[in-house]
Simulated assay, not measured.
Amino acid sequence: MHPHVHIDLTGKRALVTGSSQGIGLAIATGLARAGASVVLTGRDPGRLEAAAAGIDGEVTTVAGDVVSDEGTAALLAAVPDVDVLVNNLGIFGAQPALEITDDEWRPYFETNVLTAVRLTRAYLPGMRDRGWGRVQYIASDSAVVVPAEMIHYGMSKTALLAVSRGFAKEAAGSGVTVNSVIAGPTHTGGVEDFVRSLVGDELAWDEAQHEFMRLHRPQSLLQRLIEPEEIANMCVYLASPLASATTGGALRVDGGYVDAILP
């Protein structure tokens, strides 16, 4: 975050799902830097503890699979209220469209969409009662420009845009804002593996990244992968009092990938 933009989240508790690595960890780190008390979630206790150790601030971890009813119940028991909810948890992968089975479609909806709906349903009423809160959904350029090899993933991210807009209406006039963030192709460990699956292991990383963008994401105006911290900057802003008039939106941190002026 730019040093001349003062964001103070002292006294606020923020929960970021899927936050042991990648974009989720970058968001949690940025929120903690702004003064928020941060809750990290994920399935692997060891990875969560390692992630928490790298954050300077008040951090707690809750290990469990929030895709399941049991995992969600455990999280809600440990963390009954939050001021900021960032629904970041998601899965992705490539598969020829006509080869995606019903059993492969379901986890994309259950993980990427239904988990976010369930947590919003749990935490939004408390935010509304207190007259302040922030709910965010980490969507993707794939929500708008659906890749032919990832239509199950694209579907889930398009659904998040509808979910976000709908819950923003539910929160109207309450002091709670609800937004989605359209993240473009981002440099994470999982994306490195994905890039390699498409362009091979022979090239050095910089060359592989360039080849991936040239062949598979030529619409990008940035012409490079986005760093997780660049996504986090938008999320920290949206979590702050500075973004009090921004709600019901789909804000792009996509490197100009989506060829449209709006959103």
Rank of each mutant, 00 (worst) to 15 (best):
A116E: 09
A116M: 05
R118W: 10
R118Y: 14
R118E: 07
L119F: 15
T120S: 14
D129H: 13
R130F: 08
R130G: 04
G131H: 08
G133Y: 14
R134I: 02
V135C: 11
I138R: 04
A139W: 13
S140T: 10
S140L: 14
D141N: 06
V145W: 10
V146P: 14
V146M: 13
A148C: 00
A148H: 04
M155L: 11
S156N: 05
T158P: 01
L161Y: 05
L161K: 02
A162K: 08
S164P: 07
R165K: 10
G166H: 14
G166C: 12
F167L: 13
K169A: 12
K169R: 13
E170N: 14
A172S: 12
G173Q: 06
S174L: 08
T177E: 00
T177I: 01
V178I: 07
V178P: 11
V178Q: 05
V181H: 09
A183Q: 10
G184Y: 12
P185A: 02
T186G: 04
T186F: 01
H187N: 05
H187L: 13
H187C: 01
T188S: 14
G190V: 07
V191E: 05
V191L: 09
E192I: 15
D193L: 06
F194R: 08
F194W: 15
V195I: 06
R196F: 04
S197N: 06
G200A: 03
G200L: 03
D201L: 10
E202V: 12
E202I: 05
A204E: 02
E207K: 15
H210C: 00
E211W: 00
F212D: 00
M213H: 06
M213Q: 04
M213L: 08
